[in-house]
Design a protein around this nucleic acid. Structure first.
Length: 437
DNA sequence: TCGTCTTACACTTTTGAAACGT
DNA sequence: AACGTTTCAAAAGTGTAAGACG
């Protein structure tokens, strides 16, 4: 994983990737709104990194007047802008470790956040199809609040307990292999296991900053980066999976989650049979035998399912799905059909603020009475009104970008300089502070 | 007092360099 | 000499428990 600072040594301490957005919460402490800085920009490294990117066939049209974002924490009044989001038709994403996620989701997924940064477990691991094998794409992941509530563990379930904290600076994790060809991404599952979550608002490492005891939803964005550092783009598709919703905590609240983590995460092996927590583990085994199955025998429950170093990143060397013709990349004609029209926003603009490309949610979701409930795929997710709808694909777990693409809000194109600096593979982008909902 | 957060700890896996073999 | 495999130590990732903090 690259640290953005390694790529941009010369920008100085005042440089920020994401400009403060219109309507941003002005009451936010400056240290938070300024967020992550990139003190050392080395453009030569950037050139090297971007040298392989193909020339862009299309140019960004002149930017239209920018609509204002809704004010922070304000009512949701602004309808999505009329511009259509340039999606990637035919592109579908499936959650590889869906079974594991469902196991956690059924209990109420919790993710530890620490000052130094903690990895997500389970990690988001997806398979993608429908890309142009020869085009280059960026894979991004960010995490957004699900609602405006803070949660509290009530012994048996999670309950809302008050208003959410002000939204923290948005950061986006860029998959280390980005940008890579569609053939590369489709060759094997793409894992985001290196993503780290932190509760340190002044985190210097570029980890994704979250509030403790808040509910979050990871999102995965695919950007066709026809030319990364100019005003070109080739379409974008965003995906999310309801079962990956989680509540951030500094210490596990639900003992069943702890047991699930120990059972499924190889790094927690020490807390199993022969570990210090063997009594507790034995009790859990008994429970699993009664209610589910022995860990390791439940599909998606094997510890390898999310083992770091699996099919995940650095896909540049992996070769897991190569031999499966059934899952081979779609023919080129399908991909060419997804080629975007001329004009439109750029990949870097999307990097600057992916959320803007999906517009603002048309409404705030109702507070969930209890997180213990399994997510209802049939019910629109809180952000879905302005987000790409995900339809279960033929494979069951595959989600496809629906044709009824929502809106595209170009107001963030204006926010960043062109060419936009790109933090590089495995890095994070600080999106700056932005309105909460 | 209670809920939340921080830190040190023991344990495990991962990673990469060095050694070794072909 | 080049390449591939094995070994091993350091680094990194886990949840726990105790204590600090507000």
């Amino acid at each position: 994983m690259y640290h953005p600072r390694e790529l941009y040594p010369s920008l100085g301490t005042g440089y920020r990737l994401g400009h403060p957005q219109p309507g941003a919460d002005s009451t936010f402490p400056p240290a938070l709104t300024e967020g992550y800085r990139y003190p050392d920009l080395d453009t030569s490294k950037l050139d090297c990194f971007l040298s392989g990117i193909e020339a862009a066939p299309h140019t960004l049209a002149a930017a239209a007047p920018l609509p204002l974002l809704p004010s922070a924490l304000g009512p949701e009044t602004a309808p999505p802008p009329p511009e259509a989001l340039h999606s990637l038709p035919g592109v579908s994403l499936s959650l590889e470790n869906q079974e594991l996620w469902k196991e956690f989701s059924a209990v109420g997924t919790e993710m530890i956040i620490t000052k130094a940064g903690r990895r997500m477990f389970p990690a988001c691991r997806v398979s993608v199809t429908g890309l142009d094998p020869e085009a280059r794409y960026l894979f991004l992941l960010d995490v957004v609040p699900v609602d405006g509530a803070r949660y509290r563990w009530q012994g048996q379930h999670w309950e809302p307990s008050g208003k959410a904290e002000p939204r923290l600076p948005d950061r986006v994790y860029i998959h280390p292999d980005s940008p890579a060809t569609g053939a590369h991404w489709m060759r094997q599952p793409v894992s985001f296991h290196r993503v780290k979550l932190t509760n340190s608002t002044l985190d210097p490492h570029g980890h994704l900053i979250l509030h403790s005891m808040h509910k979050y939803q990871p999102r995965i964005h695919l950007v066709r980066a026809t030319q990364l550092c100019s005003q070109h783009w080739g379409g974008v598709a965003s995906f999310r999976f309801p079962e990956t919703t989680f509540i951030s905590v500094t210490a596990y609240q639900n003992p069943r989650i702890t047991q699930l983590k120990i059972a499924a995460n190889p790094f927690a092996k020490g807390f199993r049979e022969n570990g210090r927590n063997c009594k507790r583990w034995a009790s859990f085994i008994q429970g699993m035998l009664t209610n589910y199955c022995v860990p390791g025998t439940v599909p998606g429950y094997q510890e390898h399912d999310d083992t770091p170093g699996g099919p995940c990143d650095s896909t540049l060397g992996g070769d897991i799905r190569d031999s499966d013709p059934e899952q081979a990349p779609t023919p080129r004609e399908a991909a060419s059909a997804s080629a975007p029209p001329c004009g439109g926003p750029s990949a870097e603009a999307y990097l600057l603020h992916p959320a803007a490309f999906h517009g603002a949610p048309s409404h705030l979701p109702a507070r969930t009475p209890s997180f213990a409930e399994a997510p209802d795929p049939g019910r629109p997710a809180p952000y879905s009104a302005a987000f790409l709808d995900l339809q279960p694909g033929p494979g069951g777990s595959a989600y496809q970008a629906a044709p009824s693409v929502p809106s595209f809000a170009p107001h963030f194109i204006q926010g960043g300089p062109f060419p936009l600096p790109y933090p590089g593979p495995g890095g994070y982008l600080d999106m700056g502070s932005k309105p909460m909902y």
